[in-house]
Design a binder for these strands. Structure first.
Lengths: 217, 217
DNA sequence: ATTGCTAAAATTGTCGACAATCTGTTGATC
DNA sequence: GATCAACAGATTGTCGACAATTTTAGCAAT
């Protein structure tokens, strides 16, 4: 695990990030530096360090001499993000078909089996809200072995995607369908068919995006 | 232009970024906060603000309690970056074929005509290191009308790409060839053929990457 | 009531100093 | 001579205070 939280600003960053993603801090709301620094028991300098990183994750927006705002979730932005995500994870998937070891592929298969056996999938509940290494997408991305791509997707885009998932809700019949799609993707990778794997991943993500977009009505 | 340099850390950020991209600060070299802050006549807090943004551009790497280093240029990283860039600009190009107005397309055509008439292209000189290429790719990217994608490419990835171009050198017969490729791309966009435009852009970028990679020998 | 100006309050940007951590060297022990 | 511990030096992380800018509040004029 590289989930290293060495410094104070690391901890504040992680805490606030979670608060934003989970909706504890409302989308679009203004962020007061004095208030937040007091709440988290750190100085403003430390808080600002954390805010900088939140901006890198596109979770907040800054204006000079004005301040920070939590981003607002809109259908338009969702569309933009999922277009980017589709292209990048599609690429990751194609690369993974070449670069993943047989061992890594088997581990992902075992992961999916495990998910199935816990039956949370069948109950259509919270399959999507898993985090970190437990996440299917996480492993495929890392399987690309492209560290720049990994950083982009896991550190800069992932929490933003997660924010839409969590706040817009993600459940119902889509869940078990998503599971089947995951299975098809890992099979394509196991067959070393990068082109197919990329196509399937792009479709999978597009379907996921459409599912969230539907919640905006 | 939104090239707004409002605050002191903005200016320091832009200055250091240029120094890194142009190679004035050697790749892989360690960055001393006290030294740089003195050199740029600002406090360490202001400098660190700038360093944070440089990290967002992937131009420097940080380790907790250790410090910053300028990234090192390697063939492997070049490959990684160009894989990502190819996917993203390919996407941008496809979107541009749908979203650019006829006016915007004609402006890009006029831009290329202008580049040709200045004859710098025919002389095979520095077409790549100037705003010529910058403008072309910039305009296509902005033509995608996807603000997240625009930000990713123009603010987070572009200077890194430019660093490879500038420091590894970029000239010779590749230049006039690149110009022809630009022409083919804008024609595909004008024909509203997004699929072709994406394909051409991906090839164009791959060729550009290979050209740089050759310099590593 | 609305508009425009002025001043006060609040917020962000910047600074210099202190604390925590790492790095490199010295010297002791085996 | 090699390994390791302790120490000194330097570097980064953090803090509280001040400066610059923006926002708000109040008042005056139309």
């Amino acid at each position: 695990m590289e989930n290293e939280v060495k410094t104070a600003s690391d901890k504040v960053f992680v805490d606030i990030r979670q608060a934003i993603v989970e909706g504890e801090i409302a989308q679009g709301s203004k962020i007061s530096e004095p208030e937040l620094s007091k709440k988290h028991q750190v100085s403003r300098a430390t808080l600002r360090e954390a805010l900088n990183r939140l901006e890198s994750c596109h979770l907040i927006e800054r204006k000079a001499n004005v301040g920070c705002r939590v981003i607002s979730l809109t259908p338009e932005k969702l569309d933009e993000i999922y277009q980017v995500r589709s292209a990048l994870e599609g690429l990751a998937c194609r690369l993974a078909a070449t670069n993943m070891t047989d061992d890594e592929i088997n581990q992902v298969k075992a992961l999916l089996d495990d998910h199935l056996s816990t039956q949370r999938v069948r109950q259509g509940e919270s399959y999507y809200q898993e985090e970190g290494d437990l996440d299917f997408h996480y492993r495929i991305i890392k399987g690309s072995k492209n560290s720049h791509l990994i950083n982009l997707l896991c550190n800069e885009l992932y929490q933003l995607v997660r924010m839409y998932r969590v706040q817009m809700g993600m459940n119902g019949p889509r869940v078990s369908k998503a599971f089947d799609e995951h299975l098809a993707i890992i099979n394509a990778i196991a067959a070393r068919d990068g082109e197919l794997a990329e196509l399937l991943m792009k479709r999978h993500i597009a379907a996921s995006g459409n599912n969230i977009e539907r919640k905006f009505q």
